[in-house]
Design a protein around this nucleic acid. Sequence first.
DNA 1: GATTATATTGACCGATCAGTCAATGTGAAG
DNA 2: CTTCACATTGACTGATCGGTCAATATAATC
Lengths: 193, 193
Amino acid sequence: MSQSKRAELIRKALLLFYRNGFHATGMDLVAKETGVSKTSIYKHFRTKDELILAVLRLRDEEFRNWLFRRMEELADTPQGQLLAMFDALEEWFLEDGFKGCMFIKASAEFQNPDDAINAQAYAHKRMLVDHFENLATHAGAENPHALARQFLLLKEGAIVIAAMSHSESAAREAKSVASLLVASGLVGTQRTA
Amino acid sequence: MSQSKRAELIRKALLLFYRNGFHATGMDLVAKETGVSKTSIYKHFRTKDELILAVLRLRDEEFRNWLFRRMEELADTPQGQLLAMFDALEEWFLEDGFKGCMFIKASAEFQNPDDAINAQAYAHKRMLVDHFENLATHAGAENPHALARQFLLLKEGAIVIAAMSHSESAAREAKSVASLLVASGLVGTQRTA
DNA sequence: GATTATATTGACCGATCAGTCAATGTGAAG
DNA sequence: CTTCACATTGACTGATCGGTCAATATAATC
């Protein structure tokens, strides 16, 4: 199987898992929708869980690239970019196929802490908070780590509520809280945009 | 089937669904664990989805009773009770069997907006925000509805992160943000505990 | 063009899925 | 004690689950 074929398989599997859920999506459906026989799939992924892990790796890469790039496009300063995250989220919530966060859902369906899927889902969140902390540091926050964790809190809350309510308004609500946090946590430092 | 037997069945099914997930829990397992034959279960619940709906009704009632009572026990004033929610959440996160929010997980596994399970899961969150808004009003908040939505945001974010990270620290982080919100949104009104 | 190594396949495995049915057990009314 | 309405059961359905295997197609090597 060529590398491009393999990538396409993972991308199509991602859509199926994202739309229908992990347990609810059978490997027969994956085979049918990708046009690759089940035997071939199992030649490249030893188990369904391994395919899911590959899907999560792709999602992690794509989502990170998209979010961080969008934050940079929307603002010039570190603190502006932190706040712009919620504008980016709002755009995401408004997309047609939006169905919540794939990692939250993966963690919800594979709850065992020893499960590799569970661990990988949380690793995505740790990667996010690291990025936030980096930005917060450059923004001159009093406590960059604490601020980053609070931003993650707001982001996850907004995603969950947006997915459950089928509305994008949580993004703006989260941003208003985030603005307050930034204003509070950067007191005494430069606050210019 | 007596009312108590039925209630016990739902309670045991709740534990199974909460621990293993909805799709991952088969009706044969429910029958085995409850000691009630599958035929009998289907005499009282026409489909698995109806059993899940009954489970969610029980969870809604139990969680609401527990949370609201705990908030009242931990504080005397409306605004104190709002902040005490996060102390109650921390207690929950530290419980042995904590596995996240059942409604978030239900919404994640049944994503179709037309699905009754999806709708009922969101109804639970609307019930919560109504209660928060009521407390915020009595606390003299400038914009009770906005404050209630922000509290929901923090609560859902804290639950998701606590479940994914297998740690209770998100509760304190959310409370610190909530304190800032209360201090900010109640400016000009009484702020005594 | 023959040989060989590798991809790919449809058919199949036992287990489990949600849900059903004929048969049996049970308790109250007569 | 009999009857009758109803609750409960184990065994079963066709479909689907994750995963496998012998056979075939394909492509590279000589």
